[in-house]
Design a protein around this nucleic acid. Structure first.
Lengths: 338, 338
DNA sequence: CTGTTAGCGCCTTCAG
DNA sequence: CTGAAGGCGCTAACAG
């Protein structure tokens, strides 16, 4: 009774029959495992090709009880930062024989949780998450599943499992100190409404910690980074009297720059403008933005390597902080009072 | 003999035992399928939660002989265009109960082929490809696998299966005609070296078809779009005497614009600059780029719907062309001779 | 509404 | 170096 018996469609069995060997020999040949004579292996491979044999990864994963698969969760793809990190990561994973599956959270913890939950049903070998702030149910879920997990971009000394990232609070403080040294005194921060992006919040805290005047941080609504920057600058100038504005990234800073010029504010004299991430845009601007370069690709590669090591049972540092570098530009004064 | 017998880890069996029902009842309850009393279903769901039961999708896919999975192949993620298309698409697929898996080809046909081949081993329900130019082995492979396939972004009247996209040759001709009407006569095209991006090539052909002077098209190397634009403009001015330059997208056009200003060329008087895609950048520029808006999100949604319909056995139009719209800006003259 | 049975395609284990 | 057998976890097909 029941379903159609093992017919021609049956993958490995067809190949085995055609080659006059057992399925195991085919299995070994296909995987390139030892235990098959070179001659037989060649013959089998050729038959498989002729028959358009496509192995069934579901069956494989089922019999192995886990798949050669790594899930990667990113906040969004509309952002060069994550594309860079991803780029460094995927190559490394794939060269190690893993497939990767990507999802975006859109900065929503609940969404991330749901995705992880669904992904776990595929029995992945490991997981990569962005940031160190997650839904409270996530950690227990991962613990239970016993899956190696890498957290990137953000840094925390006590990650779920391992972590390779940048300390955004410290990075914010670092640029802020540089800018304060230039004589600026009244800071504002533009980018991502408070509470939506943990990295933005951390950086804002870092910036604020350096100045005596409280940090001005307008609430924003737009989604396009250029417009967020422009609208954010206008809002900041309306709500207060900042003499320097820190933007979440260079695209927003550029949007802010155009708005400052339109508003007749002198940059960097009246108003300093500071970006973040040292994006490609900055390389063509007639006046370079003062910004902070972040080791995104390196982060991807290092993170991937740490995770692979962990997968192979090697135990390294749990948390690796990466350094950033302030890139002075023409949108802040060259020296104090100048 | 052989492996550990069905132990506690055994998923559905544990839940069934705990609930005092058969595995089928658990299976039905978990899937929300009819045939379980509300009371039992509730009890089962609760036990499953308590036991941290995570279904095994591999087993499910194996028993169903195909997975609720749709593969999406994009050239790159470092480009808002594909992020937009993706955005429209993923939501639609997920709401229909499908998971999506993304890969990038980096404009390499062989790489796309390899990915498709690997993906097929997971027995996906459908596939989405970017463009209509693929490795010659791809079509037979898909044919053999019998998998519904959507081609997007680009348009062709005879797709592999179904197609929703923009005719880039026609789009190029459309802007070119507009610009020619403004009095420009000697065109250049900047973006993607010939032979790397089929859409770029098609658009260049479209542009060239409108003018009497042959199209100048420098070969480029940079990867950052802003720098490609700047370097491309300089190369074009070195290699010839264009009076209007069509860029592959707005980011490149902006890079070109800054280079034109640096080179002392008057825009739009001496030189017209034309972008493509109407990206967010354009909304903050003091002088808006002349560009072409493309229905990217709509394309994603429509494409996804067509594919879902096909998956449900509905047979619609095989190929759907989408219109683009020229957006006049300040980087081309307002009217002929002005 | 509920349970029994067999098999999805592959791989581990054990025997030659 | 090769083969036979059973199980990975789940669900379709059939009974009750």
């Amino acid at each position: 009774m029941t379903r159609r018996p093992r017919t021609s469609t049956s993958g490995i069995y067809t190949v085995a029959a055609e080659a006059g060997v057992s399925v195991m020999t085919v299995s070994r040949a296909m995987r390139g495992v030892e235990g098959v004579s070179a001659k037989k292996r060649e013959a089998i491979l050729q038959i498989a090709r002729r028959l358009n044999y496509v192995p069934n990864s579901n069956a494989r994963a089922l019999s192995q009880t886990n798949a050669d698969l790594i899930g990667i969760s990113l906040p969004t793809l509309v952002n060069d930062v994550f594309a860079d990190i991803l780029d460094g990561m995927r190559g490394t994973f794939e060269r190690a024989g893993y497939s990767t599956v990507i999802d975006t959270t859109e900065y929503d913890e609940a969404r991330e949780l749901r995705w992880v939950s669904r992904l776990l049903s595929w029995r992945p070998a490991a997981l990569v998450l962005t940031g160190v702030h997650h839904h409270p149910d996530l950690k227990p879920m991962l613990r239970d599943a016993g899956i190696p997990t890498l957290e990137t971009w953000d840094f925390a000394p006590d990650p779920i499992d391992i972590c390779v990232g940048v300390d955004h609070r410290a990075a914010g403080a670092e640029v802020a100190a540089y800018v304060k040294g230039l004589g600026y005194r009244r800071p504002a921060f533009v980018g991502a409404s408070p509470g939506t992006d943990p990295r933005a919040d951390a950086r804002a805290v870092g910036v604020g910690s350096v100045f005596d005047t409280p940090l001005l941080r307008p609430v924003l609504t737009h989604d396009n980074p250029f417009r967020v920057g422009a609208a954010g600058l206008r809002a900041a100038l309306t709500e207060g009297e900042p003499d320097v504005i820190f933007f979440l990234n260079d695209l927003m800073a550029f949007g802010g720059l155009t708005a400052a010029e339109a508003a007749g504010r002198g940059v960097p004299g009246d108003l300093g403008i500071v970006g973040f991430n040292a994006l490609g845009l900055n390389t063509v601007l007639p006046v370079r933005l003062t910004t902070v370069s972040t080791p995104r690709r390196q982060m991807g590669v290092m993170g991937a390597r740490s995770l692979l090591a962990r997968l192979n049972g090697v135990r390294g540092a749990r948390a690796t902080p990466l350094a950033v570098e302030v890139q002075p530009g023409g949108t802040t004064r060259l020296q104090a009072g100048a």
